[in-house]
């Protein structure tokens, strides 16, 4: 299990934590993490601080999530590791997601 998600009652945020690799193999699990929720989250936090690898299909998966969440007022925040921050940066994903600076 490399993906764990938890809904936080107090602020209505769905936290999705991904460890190890974030790539095509985690596709179904990742999709399930935000589609199989009982509550409708007010915001999302994707925690990639402990993931060490992300590929371009994972970028595509983030876009699918953005499409699913739909509403532009719902914030999707990403907390990347240093490596992943570079990948997000190259794709200039800060235009579509709120990307926090990695903790070095």
């Amino acid at each position: 299990m490399t993906i764990a998600s938890q809904y936080q009652q107090q602020n209505g945020q769905l936290v999705i934590q991904i460890t190890e690799r974030f790539d095509y193999s985690t596709r179904d699990e990742f999709r399930a993490s935000y589609t199989n929720t009982d509550e409708i989250p007010k915001s999302y936090l994707i925690d990639l601080q402990h993931a060490d690898y992300m590929d371009s299909s994972a970028l595509g998966m983030l876009l699918l999530m953005k499409e699913y969440v739909g509403n532009n007022n719902v914030e999707i925040k990403i907390k990347p590791s240093t490596n992943i921050h570079k990948i997000l940066d190259v794709a200039t994903f800060q235009q579509m997601f709120v990307i926090k600076s990695p903790i070095v």
Binding site: S56, V90, A91, T92, Q95, M96
Partner: peptide
Amino acid sequence: VQSQSMPLGILVKGSS
């Protein structure tokens, strides 16, 4: 020479 824009095919025409 760094990437300055999104990969192609993500953003709708006329957007940012």
